[in-house]
Structure formats: C-alpha cells, structure tokens
C-alpha cells in the first residue's frame, strides 16, 4: 500500500505491507536503526518516537497508519556537529549504561524539553513511567532530565527557542 510519511523532516513514499509495524518501517525500510525494539508489544517504551510531536510507541502502530503524518526519531536530534542538549545531559550525568532504552527515553523527554519547563523528580518519573531501563536504576536518568530541563528553561527565560522537534 502506497504510504507517504514524513520522517525527521524528509518525505518518504513507500509501498508497504499493511501488517508492517512503524518500528520495522523505520528500521528496515528507512535504515533508521536508532529506534530500538525491545518487547514489541507496547510494554517497554524503547521504540518511542514522536508522531506529530507527541510520544507514541512505534511497535503498536502500523506504518500505514502513519500516512500523511510527521514522525521524529532519535536520528532527528543531533546535528552533524552537535549533540542535542538532552543527549549532552544524558552523557554528562551517566543517564545510560548499555544505551538500549536511551532513544526511547530521549524521545519521551523531547516534548517535555521543548516546553521549556522545569519538573519535579516525581513529574519526571511520571513522564518516563512508560520506559523500562534494565541498567541504570533510573536515578541518573532523572538527573539527566533535570539537567536538560534546566537548560531548556534557561533558554526560554532568556527569550530563546528550545527548537521545534
């Protein structure tokens, strides 16, 4: 089925089987393997991407359902030369060990970052409650999120944009 999806700002027209999951479309059709697939039935959150700016699980969505919509993956975060401030924060605060959950954590936190608001520990934990990490024990992930959100809030207070997704 002919399906047009915009991924990281670039339009793609592909003939896809209706049963193809969005996660497989991203990884196998487009070669964007940054989106990790863990449980493949909606539980772990590692496959989180943005759909029209909102976090969703790409393993519980069919690629054909994405027709005409805008998807952002972890590959859409960094530029040629610079990591995204969220990625910088995860690196600085040891917010990852094996890194498997990281793309999902980053994409879940990206809309929060873009809002430019500081959150409490509890609010951050609520925001990432749908993402499992088997390594870190979450503490450093919460610290990474704080660091990134402080940065975003400072940008907003200084009259700058946190940049759209």
């Amino acid at each position: 089925m002919k399906t047009h999806i915009t991924v990281n700002g670039e339009g793609h027209e592909r003939d896809v089987e209706p049963r193809m999951l969005l996660s497989d479309y991203l990884r196998h059709e487009l070669g964007l393997t940054g989106t990790n697939v863990g449980c493949e039935h909606g539980v772990c959150g590692s496959c989180t991407v943005l759909l029209d700016g909102e976090p969703v699980r790409s393993c519980t969505m069919l690629a054909v359902q994405g027709a005409g919509r805008r998807v952002t993956t972890v590959e859409g975060l960094a530029t040629e030369s610079d990591l995204h401030p969220l990625q910088e924060a995860f690196s600085a605060c040891h917010g990852l060990q094996c890194g498997f959950c990281t793309p999902g954590m980053l994409m879940t936190l990206l809309p929060v970052y873009n809002k430019g608001e500081r959150l409490s520990d509890e609010e951050i934990r609520e925001a990432i409650s749908g993402n499992l990490c088997r390594c870190t024990g979450y503490q450093q992930i919460v610290e990474s999120a704080h660091k990134a959100l402080d940065h975003a809030a400072a940008l907003v207070e200084g009259g700058e944009d946190t940049a759209a997704d």
């Binding site: 976090p55 969703v56 993402n131």
Partner: peptide, 9 residues
C-alpha cells in the same frame, strides 16, 4: 490508564 505514550494513541 496505561503509559503516556499509549494514552496518546
């Protein structure tokens, strides 16, 4: 009801 990403769909 489920996690934020699931509630968005």
């Amino acid at each position: 009801v489920a996690h934020p990403q699931i509630r968005n769909r």
